[in-house]
Design a binder for these strands. Structure first.
Lengths: 210, 210
DNA sequence: TTAAAACTAACTAACATTCGTTAGGTATCT
DNA sequence: AGATACCTAACGAATGTTAGTTAGTTTTAA
């Protein structure tokens, strides 16, 4: 008889709250198709409720979208900042960072796509949010790291270059598929990381073999 | 009497055809806001005609969009393929390519944004079109170039890396604005090119000074 | 040469859908 | 009884698109 009470206990491990389910599904849909191409009805259908019920959990579509990107970005920010905490020589640290970041970035496609979409359509306010809440800490740490490797360099430029090599490679996967020399291995995190680290250490000369 | 015939000669230099005006305006609008966020009413208003009149020139919105991206991409493809034609040593050629490509890419924001959008939302068919009609030739040439610099390397990876460093830098401008070490000069084509070439030649070590 | 026909390039007005959103009702559980 | 979490039904606005019309120009034919 008391077994019924077990339902009232928020068993997050067993069943997610509806609010969280909505966010999770919204993340996937918004990342896949973009804000304007996902209707409230699409989201409701995917969740398994009626459109009007969404408005019990969120004020409007915009609010739901903001909750979604905050969820993706803040959850990722935690994982990212952890990467640069280790105590090692600069080069080892960079290598570790590149490998770890490649892994995280290639695992989470919605995260990548939402960043891309925000880069295109995000207003200044959301851009600032993205910079401060997601990238600032690790960007600063990465800047210091590349500065340690070469004290003469422009750390902003070099930090962006590190991220470029990893992220743009992943972003261009659908078109690279049609470009000469494409191989399946090119999409594996470890392979990307190896290439990027090698390139950053040696430049185009003395680069990795085929 | 035959003077009337002069009217039939399309004086393109004086006044663009309506069709071309529609495409030009569509390119800007689609690049700026994306397909779904631009209504045919928006386009018509910007052109200075009524929405229904658009359907005299184009079958539907999708057709107009396709005509727009084909226009941007094919016009750019011509300029791009010219870059790699010169006869010079490999390194000089690469340097020239990087400078020229940085210039072209930073000049034409709609071109960049439409590529970005296609990368996110283009279907397989459009991706193949983009690859074959815009990038294939120069990608092959660039691949050969990096292969010449290091015969042991994976040309696909290295060619993408060259493009990454330039394009991603430009794409991230709105967020870089909020990141540490941002400077206005970072957006100048020549500055970007100098950094990228230096990085590719020497890696992070012995890189450009501040 | 000139009147008729056909074409060009725009228009007005409206259509059917889809959209985000809201008001008000209902079942379940504390 | 009241709160929670959903529902049905509908609203007004915006969307892509079409039908039908008109004015001006060009082509054709008598």
């Amino acid at each position: 008889m008391n077994a019924v009470k077990d339902n009232s206990v928020k068993d997050k491990s067993v069943k997610e709250s509806t609010r969280q389910t909505i966010i999770d599904i919204s993340i996937k849909l918004f990342a896949q198709s973009g804000y304007a191409n996902v209707s409230v009805r699409d989201i409701a259908a995917a969740v398994g409720i009626k459109p009007a019920s969404l408005y019990y959990h969120f004020d409007n579509k915009q609010t739901l979208y903001l909750a979604s990107i905050k969820e993706v970005f803040s959850s990722k920010a935690i994982a990212l900042t952890e990467i640069l905490q280790i105590q090692e020589p600069a080069e080892t640290k960079l290598k570790y960072y590149i490998y770890k970041f490649s892994e995280l970035a290639s695992e989470d496609e919605p995260f990548r796509r939402l960043i891309q979409r925000e880069m295109l359509d995000g207003d200044e306010q959301r851009m600032q949010y993205l910079a401060e809440k997601v990238f600032q800490d690790q960007f600063n740490a990465l800047s210091l790291l590349v500065l340690e490797i070469d004290p003469q360099c422009d750390p902003h430029l070099n930090a962006i270059s590190v991220l470029s090599l990893i992220l743009y490679h992943l972003e261009t996967t659908p078109i690279r598929y049609f470009l000469k020399g494409y191989k399946k291995q090119h999409n594996q995190a470890e392979f990307i990381a190896q290439h990027v680290f090698n390139l950053l250490m040696n430049g185009l000369l003395r680069s990795d073999t085929l």
